[in-house]
Design a protein around this nucleic acid. Structure first.
Lengths: 323, 323
DNA sequence: GATTCAACGGACTGATCCTGTCCGCAGAGG
DNA sequence: CCTCTGCGGACAGGATCAGTCCGTTGAATC
């Protein structure tokens, strides 16, 4: 084991356990304690703060520094990180600008590096769990997002089935450029090789994805963000609901992701806050609203209004006190 | 820059961008391309699969190997990872045994390494967001969980305020040993220095935590898991609700975390599935149930039944079609 | 306060390895 | 077919590294 590898191993050991003595480290790394001390000194020079304690029960410990050291994760921790990133980036639980993007970019990074044996475990995990209350239709599959994030960063020609606004399915071959979150949904900006032009795709309408080994050609195109915001309204959500909620915008924002509801400016009225929500699935939205801790009234559409009335009526009838 | 540091930097560069040419790397690392090639070869010897492409537009790229290489995350990605782990471990969105534990253990690892400037950003992020529908009372603060996970792994004497079952608040000084998830809640197994005995604490009842620099003394004690499962029932949830849901157990499990509801064996009846749910907050549970996509009936307690009737009645009245 | 444990770091030596230079080879794209 | 780019052997000089030895310092325990 040479110097560099030993330093990497040392970083790993220090992250794996809270506390090591020089003797333990020396034994693990198969060197003398003098060398361990020198390696520790070197890590400190590189900027990783290794704390040392003398005396009985003394030893080494990694502390917080100026930057996060390279994270060495074991299999289970890798699963947890990948799963967590999927929840944040894909299910949009944060609603804070930037975090979702960072989550997806980190997902792409992991997708590129994830050993195959862990990939299948991650897929099993997905099959076994569903994030409560996520809009099953409008939110894309985490595997699709990961594959696309990877395709974008590795610049690979990618093929997939796409369902357009008129429910027509076509097989597309594209060169992905960038993923953009706009409002409630993720979009992919890409050069469509079949159409020989720039196109945007709603990620939740992509299926059967296949990332090839062929690298995209150099290509200068329009700004992906602009491309998406120009085209996206045409492929917006099927339904647009307006709801008056008996709570202040701040209260709502604390509980409802901005990726779900648009509170808009000047939305506060005498009856509370007016929220606009886009969705493809009214049934889901009905449940979502009923789960909120505030009274509300659906202003439009009527279909949603009726659905709320039905469900609430049925519940009320079933739970009425015995006469 | 010496060899080992350059290798670490090289790993970082390869993760940061999809694709680098030898010249670019050589310039960045301030060495000749020959040395870059040698460094790449060394990384491959260590087990990190660096892929190379010759010809026009050729270059280097990190591929998937046997194990995840040390992850070098930038600030934003670190935020996303920490936030995602918090969602999974703390808000219990997975419900799969092991993943929550791994998430909390990874959180502890990050807590130990997280630069201070990022810590405050993470706290801001927490303040700005709330995971929709999480049980505000029964689920602990992510910061508390992180601090405890760190205190456990670093074995630090820790003090905090604890609210016991009779709402009495006491300041405790403990040596934390392990965090255990049992049913719906996280528990901390620790040696209470004030009481001079082993105690368990519900993590969501811990506040004002302070992890000291003093390391715990060596101490052989009972098995933490056993300790928690022996004592925990005494500090269980305030309310226990039984609900009949018009869905199969499999359907329910797909949407509801097992950390929330216990479906129990033989729970399927003619009217659907009988679920047992523990909570401290009936109002929250009412909303949670109303958000589910299936009809249901509350069997007990009556207080919850009345609450459902009230809320559903009000909603139905408000959404009744105009006469 | 004495004792012990464990990290610290200087000095020295011989062996190792590392880097830059030079070069011909091989695979990919245009 | 030509060019671009990565590959890897050979070589020489010099930098670095590991082990050994040892006195010092700081903590914890008795």
């Amino acid at each position: 084991m040479d110097t560099a590898e030993r330093l990497l191993a040392l970083l790993g050991l220090l992250q794996h356990r809270w506390h090591w003595s020089a003797d333990e480290l020396a034994e693990r790394l198969e060197v003398t304690t003098r060398t361990v001390r020198r390696d520790v000194a070197r890590l400190r020079i590189y900027g990783y703060p290794v704390e040392a304690f003398a005396g009985h029960g003394g030893g080494y410990q990694l502390g917080r520094g100026a930057a996060l050291p390279p994270l060495l994760l074991d299999d289970d921790e890798t699963m947890a990180v990948a799963f967590g990133l999927g929840v944040v980036g894909v299910a949009a639980t944060s609603g804070v600008a930037g975090v979702d993007d960072a989550a997806v970019s980190a997902l792409g990074k992991i997708e590129q590096l994830l050993p195959l044996r862990l990939r299948s475990r991650l897929d099993d995990l997905d099959a076994a769990t569903v994030v409560p209350f996520r809009d099953q239709r409008a939110l894309p599959d985490r595997r699709i997002v990961m594959a696309l994030a990877h395709a974008v960063s590795a610049r690979r020609v990618t093929t997939f089935d796409y369902v357009d606004g008129r429910s027509a399915t076509t097989r597309r071959e594209v060169e992905p450029v960038r993923m953009v979150r706009l409002g409630h949904a993720w979009y992919l900006a890409a050069f469509d090789l079949g159409r020989d032009d720039w196109r945007t795709f709603r990620v939740d309408r992509i299926a059967s994805i296949d990332v090839s080994d062929v690298r995209s050609s150099e290509r200068s195109g329009p700004d992906p963000v602009e491309l998406v915001s120009r085209v996206a309204p045409a492929s917006a959500f099927e339904h647009r609901a307006v709801v008056a909620i008996a709570a202040t915008p701040d209260e709502i924002r604390r509980l409802v992701s901005t990726a779900i509801a648009d509170l808009g400016p000047g939305s506060t009225t005498g009856h509370g806050t007016r929220a606009t929500i886009g969705t493809d699935d009214l049934e889901w939205l009905a449940g979502y609203l009923m789960g909120l801790p505030w009274p509300f009234e659906v202003l439009e559409p009527d279909a949603l209004r009726r659905r709320i009335a039905d469900r609430a009526g049925a519940l009320a009838a079933r739970h009425a006190p015995p006469v």
